[in-house]
Design a protein around this nucleic acid. Structure first.
Lengths: 184, 184
DNA sequence: CACATCGGTCAACGGCTGTAGACTGAACGG
DNA sequence: CCGTTCAGTCTACAGCCGTTGACCGATGTG
Protein backbone atom coordinates (compact mmCIF):
# COMPACT_ATOMS: atom_id res chain seq x y z
CA UNK A 1 0.00 0.00 0.00
CA UNK A 2 2.21 2.76 -1.27
CA UNK A 3 1.31 6.22 -0.12
CA UNK A 4 1.12 9.10 -2.51
CA UNK A 5 3.26 12.08 -1.69
CA UNK A 6 0.20 14.11 -0.71
CA UNK A 7 -1.02 11.40 1.67
CA UNK A 8 2.42 11.06 3.19
CA UNK A 9 2.64 14.77 3.78
CA UNK A 10 -0.77 15.02 5.37
CA UNK A 11 0.01 12.12 7.70
CA UNK A 12 3.21 13.76 8.82
CA UNK A 13 1.50 17.10 9.31
CA UNK A 14 -1.15 15.41 11.43
CA UNK A 15 1.42 13.66 13.57
CA UNK A 16 3.18 16.96 14.15
CA UNK A 17 -0.06 18.73 15.01
CA UNK A 18 -1.09 16.00 17.44
CA UNK A 19 2.28 16.04 19.16
CA UNK A 20 2.26 19.83 19.34
CA UNK A 21 -1.23 19.88 20.81
CA UNK A 22 -0.27 17.45 23.51
CA UNK A 23 3.04 19.08 24.40
CA UNK A 24 1.66 22.63 24.41
CA UNK A 25 -1.23 21.43 26.60
CA UNK A 26 1.07 19.60 29.00
CA UNK A 27 3.95 22.03 29.25
CA UNK A 28 2.82 25.40 27.92
CA UNK A 29 4.30 27.51 25.17
CA UNK A 30 7.73 28.35 26.56
CA UNK A 31 8.65 24.89 27.78
CA UNK A 32 7.59 23.26 24.54
CA UNK A 33 10.38 23.20 21.97
CA UNK A 34 10.19 22.67 18.26
CA UNK A 35 12.76 19.94 18.71
CA UNK A 36 10.59 18.13 21.26
CA UNK A 37 7.53 18.35 19.04
CA UNK A 38 9.49 16.97 16.12
CA UNK A 39 10.89 14.13 18.22
CA UNK A 40 7.45 13.22 19.58
CA UNK A 41 6.09 13.19 16.04
CA UNK A 42 9.01 11.21 14.70
CA UNK A 43 9.94 14.04 12.40
CA UNK A 44 12.72 16.56 11.90
CA UNK A 45 12.76 20.03 13.47
CA UNK A 46 13.47 21.59 10.12
CA UNK A 47 10.40 19.92 8.70
CA UNK A 48 8.19 21.43 11.38
CA UNK A 49 9.49 24.85 10.44
CA UNK A 50 8.94 24.27 6.75
CA UNK A 51 5.37 23.12 7.21
CA UNK A 52 4.23 25.62 9.81
CA UNK A 53 6.55 28.57 9.39
CA UNK A 54 7.36 29.33 13.00
CA UNK A 55 6.71 28.18 16.54
CA UNK A 56 4.09 30.88 16.96
CA UNK A 57 2.19 29.80 13.87
CA UNK A 58 2.28 26.18 15.02
CA UNK A 59 0.93 27.23 18.38
CA UNK A 60 -1.83 29.24 16.72
CA UNK A 61 -2.80 26.18 14.70
CA UNK A 62 -3.36 23.94 17.72
CA UNK A 63 -4.28 26.29 20.56
CA UNK A 64 -8.00 26.73 20.27
CA UNK A 65 -10.02 29.24 22.16
CA UNK A 66 -13.41 27.76 22.99
CA UNK A 67 -16.03 29.68 21.07
CA UNK A 68 -19.52 29.27 22.42
CA UNK A 69 -22.68 30.00 20.51
CA UNK A 70 -24.72 33.13 21.04
CA UNK A 71 -26.69 33.42 24.26
CA UNK A 72 -29.85 35.32 24.99
CA UNK A 73 -33.08 35.10 26.93
CA UNK A 74 -34.00 35.59 30.54
CA UNK A 75 -31.28 35.46 33.20
CA UNK A 76 -32.43 31.95 34.08
CA UNK A 77 -32.24 30.82 30.48
CA UNK A 78 -28.82 32.42 30.04
CA UNK A 79 -27.59 30.66 33.17
CA UNK A 80 -28.77 27.32 31.81
CA UNK A 81 -27.15 27.97 28.45
CA UNK A 82 -23.85 28.74 30.13
CA UNK A 83 -24.11 25.64 32.28
CA UNK A 84 -24.83 23.52 29.20
CA UNK A 85 -21.81 25.05 27.47
CA UNK A 86 -19.64 24.26 30.48
CA UNK A 87 -20.98 20.71 30.51
CA UNK A 88 -20.01 20.30 26.89
CA UNK A 89 -16.55 21.74 27.41
CA UNK A 90 -15.84 19.49 30.38
CA UNK A 91 -16.86 16.43 28.36
CA UNK A 92 -15.19 17.18 25.05
CA UNK A 93 -11.58 16.86 24.00
CA UNK A 94 -9.88 19.79 25.64
CA UNK A 95 -6.29 19.32 24.49
CA UNK A 96 -6.41 22.26 22.08
CA UNK A 97 -8.12 24.43 24.67
CA UNK A 98 -5.76 23.32 27.41
CA UNK A 99 -2.82 24.39 25.27
CA UNK A 100 -4.33 27.86 25.20
CA UNK A 101 -5.25 27.88 28.89
CA UNK A 102 -1.87 26.60 29.99
CA UNK A 103 -0.07 29.33 28.09
CA UNK A 104 -2.40 32.28 28.56
CA UNK A 105 -0.70 33.58 31.71
CA UNK A 106 2.81 33.56 30.30
CA UNK A 107 2.43 33.95 26.53
CA UNK A 108 1.17 37.47 25.78
CA UNK A 109 -0.58 36.57 22.53
CA UNK A 110 -2.38 33.65 24.14
CA UNK A 111 -3.47 35.84 27.02
CA UNK A 112 -4.75 38.46 24.64
CA UNK A 113 -6.70 35.93 22.61
CA UNK A 114 -8.22 34.31 25.67
CA UNK A 115 -9.15 37.68 27.08
CA UNK A 116 -10.83 38.64 23.82
CA UNK A 117 -12.75 35.38 23.67
CA UNK A 118 -14.05 35.79 27.19
CA UNK A 119 -14.92 39.41 26.47
CA UNK A 120 -17.06 38.41 23.51
CA UNK A 121 -19.06 35.88 25.50
CA UNK A 122 -19.16 38.30 28.40
CA UNK A 123 -20.77 41.11 26.44
CA UNK A 124 -23.50 38.82 25.15
CA UNK A 125 -24.26 37.58 28.63
CA UNK A 126 -24.21 41.09 30.06
CA UNK A 127 -26.69 42.25 27.45
CA UNK A 128 -29.17 39.69 28.72
CA UNK A 129 -28.84 40.57 32.39
CA UNK A 130 -31.08 43.40 33.63
CA UNK A 131 -28.64 44.90 36.11
CA UNK A 132 -26.35 47.90 36.04
CA UNK A 133 -23.45 45.70 37.11
CA UNK A 134 -24.24 43.21 34.36
CA UNK A 135 -20.72 43.28 32.90
CA UNK A 136 -19.23 42.47 36.30
CA UNK A 137 -21.67 39.62 36.77
CA UNK A 138 -20.95 38.22 33.32
CA UNK A 139 -17.23 38.49 33.98
CA UNK A 140 -17.49 36.64 37.25
CA UNK A 141 -19.41 33.82 35.60
CA UNK A 142 -16.57 33.64 33.11
CA UNK A 143 -14.10 33.59 36.00
CA UNK A 144 -16.02 30.74 37.63
CA UNK A 145 -15.92 28.76 34.39
CA UNK A 146 -12.24 29.48 33.92
CA UNK A 147 -11.38 28.54 37.49
CA UNK A 148 -13.32 25.31 37.24
CA UNK A 149 -11.51 24.11 34.14
CA UNK A 150 -8.13 25.19 35.49
CA UNK A 151 -8.82 23.53 38.83
CA UNK A 152 -9.92 20.30 37.24
CA UNK A 153 -7.68 19.87 34.22
CA UNK A 154 -4.57 21.93 34.90
CA UNK A 155 -4.13 21.80 38.68
CA UNK A 156 -6.00 18.55 39.28
CA UNK A 157 -7.67 19.60 42.52
CA UNK A 158 -8.78 16.77 44.79
CA UNK A 159 -12.47 16.08 44.58
CA UNK A 160 -12.73 17.97 41.31
CA UNK A 161 -10.28 16.07 39.13
CA UNK A 162 -12.23 12.82 39.37
CA UNK A 163 -15.73 14.20 39.83
CA UNK A 164 -18.49 13.41 37.38
CA UNK A 165 -19.19 16.26 35.02
CA UNK A 166 -22.85 16.01 35.99
CA UNK A 167 -21.95 16.54 39.65
CA UNK A 168 -19.80 19.57 38.89
CA UNK A 169 -22.57 21.16 36.88
CA UNK A 170 -25.16 20.27 39.51
CA UNK A 171 -23.16 21.94 42.28
CA UNK A 172 -22.43 24.96 40.12
CA UNK A 173 -25.99 25.47 38.89
CA UNK A 174 -27.32 27.46 41.88
CA UNK A 175 -24.12 29.49 41.94
CA UNK A 176 -24.39 30.53 38.30
CA UNK A 177 -28.06 31.36 38.76
CA UNK A 178 -27.23 33.40 41.85
CA UNK A 179 -24.72 35.51 39.91
CA UNK A 180 -26.96 35.86 36.87
CA UNK A 181 -30.06 36.81 38.76
CA UNK A 182 -29.79 40.28 40.28
CA UNK A 183 -31.12 40.48 43.82
CA UNK A 184 -34.73 41.40 44.41
CA UNK B 1 25.77 59.22 55.79
CA UNK B 2 28.05 56.32 55.10
CA UNK B 3 26.39 52.94 55.00
CA UNK B 4 27.81 50.00 56.83
CA UNK B 5 28.50 46.91 54.78
CA UNK B 6 25.56 45.11 56.36
CA UNK B 7 23.18 47.97 55.53
CA UNK B 8 24.47 48.16 51.99
CA UNK B 9 24.00 44.48 51.49
CA UNK B 10 20.48 44.47 52.88
CA UNK B 11 19.51 47.38 50.64
CA UNK B 12 20.83 45.60 47.58
CA UNK B 13 19.09 42.37 48.53
CA UNK B 14 15.85 44.27 48.96
CA UNK B 15 16.18 45.94 45.59
CA UNK B 16 16.78 42.55 43.97
CA UNK B 17 13.83 40.98 45.75
CA UNK B 18 11.51 43.83 44.77
CA UNK B 19 12.60 43.66 41.14
CA UNK B 20 12.24 39.87 41.11
CA UNK B 21 8.77 40.06 42.61
CA UNK B 22 7.62 42.51 40.00
CA UNK B 23 9.17 40.72 37.04
CA UNK B 24 8.00 37.26 38.09
CA UNK B 25 4.50 38.66 38.66
CA UNK B 26 4.46 40.43 35.29
CA UNK B 27 6.13 37.85 33.08
CA UNK B 28 6.12 34.52 34.89
CA UNK B 29 9.02 32.27 35.76
CA UNK B 30 10.33 31.28 32.35
CA UNK B 31 10.27 34.73 30.76
CA UNK B 32 12.00 36.33 33.73
CA UNK B 33 15.79 36.16 33.48
CA UNK B 34 18.37 36.62 36.17
CA UNK B 35 19.95 39.23 33.96
CA UNK B 36 16.71 41.21 33.72
CA UNK B 37 16.19 41.07 37.48
CA UNK B 38 19.73 42.26 38.07
CA UNK B 39 19.35 45.11 35.57
CA UNK B 40 16.03 46.22 37.08
CA UNK B 41 17.64 46.21 40.51
CA UNK B 42 20.75 48.01 39.31
CA UNK B 43 22.90 45.06 40.28
CA UNK B 44 25.04 42.40 38.67
CA UNK B 45 23.73 38.98 37.62
CA UNK B 46 26.56 37.27 39.45
CA UNK B 47 25.55 39.06 42.61
CA UNK B 48 22.00 37.74 42.37
CA UNK B 49 23.38 34.23 42.13
CA UNK B 50 25.68 34.73 45.08
CA UNK B 51 22.95 36.08 47.32
CA UNK B 52 20.14 33.73 46.39
CA UNK B 53 21.87 30.64 45.08
CA UNK B 54 19.80 29.96 41.98
CA UNK B 55 16.88 31.24 39.98
CA UNK B 56 14.60 28.69 41.65
CA UNK B 57 15.58 29.80 45.14
CA UNK B 58 15.03 33.43 44.20
CA UNK B 59 11.59 32.54 42.88
CA UNK B 60 10.77 30.63 46.05
CA UNK B 61 11.73 33.70 48.10
CA UNK B 62 9.28 36.05 46.37
CA UNK B 63 6.46 33.81 45.12
CA UNK B 64 4.09 33.60 48.04
CA UNK B 65 1.19 31.25 48.26
CA UNK B 66 -1.63 32.93 50.12
CA UNK B 67 -2.18 31.09 53.37
CA UNK B 68 -5.55 31.70 54.95
CA UNK B 69 -6.41 31.12 58.55
CA UNK B 70 -8.36 28.10 59.74
CA UNK B 71 -12.04 27.96 58.93
CA UNK B 72 -14.86 26.24 60.77
CA UNK B 73 -18.47 26.68 61.76
CA UNK B 74 -21.73 26.32 59.93
CA UNK B 75 -21.76 26.37 56.12
CA UNK B 76 -23.02 29.95 56.29
CA UNK B 77 -20.21 30.98 58.60
CA UNK B 78 -17.63 29.21 56.46
CA UNK B 79 -18.92 30.96 53.39
CA UNK B 80 -18.60 34.33 55.10
CA UNK B 81 -15.09 33.52 56.27
CA UNK B 82 -14.06 32.62 52.73
CA UNK B 83 -15.64 35.79 51.36
CA UNK B 84 -13.80 37.86 53.96
CA UNK B 85 -10.55 36.13 53.02
CA UNK B 86 -11.18 36.88 49.33
CA UNK B 87 -11.93 40.50 50.22
CA UNK B 88 -8.63 40.78 52.01
CA UNK B 89 -6.69 39.17 49.18
CA UNK B 90 -8.23 41.45 46.56
CA UNK B 91 -7.32 44.51 48.63
CA UNK B 92 -3.80 43.60 49.72
CA UNK B 93 -0.54 43.70 47.82
CA UNK B 94 -0.69 40.73 45.53
CA UNK B 95 2.63 41.00 43.73
CA UNK B 96 4.13 38.01 45.52
CA UNK B 97 0.97 36.00 45.02
CA UNK B 98 0.68 37.04 41.39
CA UNK B 99 4.19 35.75 40.78
CA UNK B 100 3.00 32.38 42.00
CA UNK B 101 -0.29 32.49 40.11
CA UNK B 102 1.32 33.62 36.88
CA UNK B 103 3.78 30.74 36.96
CA UNK B 104 1.68 27.93 38.39
CA UNK B 105 0.49 26.63 35.02
CA UNK B 106 3.94 26.41 33.46
CA UNK B 107 6.38 25.96 36.34
CA UNK B 108 5.86 22.49 37.84
CA UNK B 109 7.06 23.42 41.34
CA UNK B 110 4.80 26.47 41.46
CA UNK B 111 1.85 24.40 40.31
CA UNK B 112 2.55 21.80 42.94
CA UNK B 113 2.80 24.39 45.70
CA UNK B 114 -0.37 26.16 44.64
CA UNK B 115 -2.20 22.87 44.42
CA UNK B 116 -1.05 21.92 47.91
CA UNK B 117 -2.09 25.28 49.32
CA UNK B 118 -5.56 25.02 47.84
CA UNK B 119 -5.84 21.44 49.05
CA UNK B 120 -5.12 22.47 52.62
CA UNK B 121 -7.80 25.13 52.63
CA UNK B 122 -10.10 22.78 50.75
CA UNK B 123 -9.94 20.04 53.35
CA UNK B 124 -10.77 22.43 56.15
CA UNK B 125 -13.74 23.79 54.26
CA UNK B 126 -14.93 20.32 53.32
CA UNK B 127 -14.80 19.22 56.94
CA UNK B 128 -17.30 21.94 57.80
CA UNK B 129 -19.77 21.12 55.04
CA UNK B 130 -22.36 18.45 55.86
CA UNK B 131 -22.54 16.87 52.42
CA UNK B 132 -21.05 13.76 50.89
CA UNK B 133 -19.73 15.83 48.00
CA UNK B 134 -18.16 18.29 50.42
CA UNK B 135 -14.69 18.01 48.88
CA UNK B 136 -16.07 18.82 45.44
CA UNK B 137 -17.95 21.80 46.82
CA UNK B 138 -14.89 23.07 48.65
CA UNK B 139 -12.80 22.62 45.52
CA UNK B 140 -15.25 24.57 43.39
CA UNK B 141 -15.23 27.45 45.87
CA UNK B 142 -11.46 27.42 45.52
CA UNK B 143 -11.84 27.41 41.74
CA UNK B 144 -14.17 30.39 41.93
CA UNK B 145 -11.68 32.28 44.06
CA UNK B 146 -8.83 31.36 41.74
CA UNK B 147 -10.78 32.33 38.64
CA UNK B 148 -11.76 35.66 40.13
CA UNK B 149 -8.20 36.69 40.94
CA UNK B 150 -6.91 35.47 37.59
CA UNK B 151 -9.70 37.24 35.75
CA UNK B 152 -9.15 40.49 37.58
CA UNK B 153 -5.39 40.73 38.02
CA UNK B 154 -3.87 38.54 35.34
CA UNK B 155 -6.28 38.73 32.42
CA UNK B 156 -7.83 42.08 33.28
CA UNK B 157 -11.37 41.21 32.27
CA UNK B 158 -13.64 44.13 31.43
CA UNK B 159 -16.00 44.98 34.23
CA UNK B 160 -13.90 43.06 36.73
CA UNK B 161 -10.54 44.78 36.42
CA UNK B 162 -11.88 48.13 37.59
CA UNK B 163 -14.69 46.95 39.83
CA UNK B 164 -14.79 47.82 43.50
CA UNK B 165 -13.71 44.95 45.69
CA UNK B 166 -16.91 45.42 47.67
CA UNK B 167 -18.98 44.93 44.51
CA UNK B 168 -17.12 41.77 43.54
CA UNK B 169 -17.65 40.28 46.97
CA UNK B 170 -21.29 41.37 47.00
CA UNK B 171 -22.00 39.66 43.68
CA UNK B 172 -20.09 36.54 44.71
CA UNK B 173 -21.69 36.21 48.15
CA UNK B 174 -24.87 34.35 47.09
CA UNK B 175 -22.82 32.15 44.78
CA UNK B 176 -20.43 31.04 47.52
CA UNK B 177 -23.33 30.42 49.86
CA UNK B 178 -25.10 28.42 47.18
CA UNK B 179 -22.09 26.13 46.76
CA UNK B 180 -21.46 25.82 50.48
CA UNK B 181 -25.02 25.08 51.43
CA UNK B 182 -26.12 21.64 50.26
CA UNK B 183 -29.58 21.61 48.78
CA UNK B 184 -32.59 20.82 50.96
C1' DC C 1 13.39 8.27 -20.20
C1' DA C 2 14.73 12.91 -18.59
C1' DC C 3 13.61 16.38 -15.73
C1' DA C 4 11.18 18.97 -12.09
C1' DT C 5 9.06 18.60 -7.61
C1' DC C 6 8.96 17.93 -3.01
C1' DG C 7 9.15 15.09 1.47
C1' DG C 8 12.67 14.39 4.50
C1' DT C 9 17.56 14.83 6.65
C1' DC C 10 21.50 17.16 8.35
C1' DA C 11 24.60 20.56 10.04
C1' DA C 12 25.23 24.97 11.33
C1' DC C 13 24.26 29.91 12.73
C1' DG C 14 23.58 33.51 16.20
C1' DG C 15 21.55 34.48 20.38
C1' DC C 16 20.14 33.94 24.92
C1' DT C 17 20.21 31.37 29.23
C1' DG C 18 21.73 29.87 34.16
C1' DT C 19 25.74 29.46 36.39
C1' DA C 20 30.81 29.51 37.92
C1' DG C 21 34.98 31.62 39.14
C1' DA C 22 38.61 34.96 39.12
C1' DC C 23 39.28 39.57 40.26
C1' DT C 24 39.07 44.56 42.56
C1' DG C 25 38.72 47.62 46.18
C1' DA C 26 36.76 49.31 50.19
C1' DA C 27 34.93 48.39 54.81
C1' DC C 28 36.08 45.72 58.72
C1' DG C 29 38.48 43.49 63.10
C1' DG C 30 42.65 42.83 65.73
C1' DC D 1 48.35 49.55 60.60
C1' DC D 2 47.98 45.10 58.59
C1' DG D 3 45.36 41.28 57.11
C1' DT D 4 40.86 39.55 56.29
C1' DT D 5 36.36 39.77 54.85
C1' DC D 6 33.07 40.68 51.57
C1' DA D 7 30.07 43.69 48.29
C1' DG D 8 30.32 44.25 43.71
C1' DT D 9 32.25 43.54 38.73
C1' DC D 10 33.74 41.10 34.75
C1' DT D 11 34.48 37.31 31.67
C1' DA D 12 33.59 32.98 30.19
C1' DC D 13 31.59 28.44 29.73
C1' DA D 14 28.37 24.98 28.25
C1' DG D 15 23.87 24.14 26.76
C1' DC D 16 19.61 24.88 24.62
C1' DC D 17 16.78 27.56 21.63
C1' DG D 18 14.35 29.04 16.95
C1' DT D 19 15.54 29.29 12.50
C1' DT D 20 18.04 28.69 8.01
C1' DG D 21 19.83 26.64 3.93
C1' DA D 22 22.21 23.08 1.56
C1' DC D 23 21.62 18.50 0.45
C1' DC D 24 19.59 13.59 -0.78
C1' DG D 25 16.40 10.51 -2.83
C1' DA D 26 12.06 9.01 -4.13
C1' DT D 27 7.87 10.43 -6.41
C1' DG D 28 5.75 12.77 -9.69
C1' DT D 29 5.15 14.66 -14.86
C1' DG D 30 6.09 15.71 -19.82
Amino acid sequence: MALTRAEQRRQTEDRILAAARRLFADNGYDRTTIRAVAAAAGADPGLVMRYFGSKDELFARVAEVPSDGPVSGSPEEVAELLLAALDGKLRGDLSGTLAMLRSMLTHPDAGQEMRAAISGQQRQVAAALPADDALLRAGLIGALTLGTIIGRDLLGLDGVRDADVADIVRVLRPAVHAIARPPG
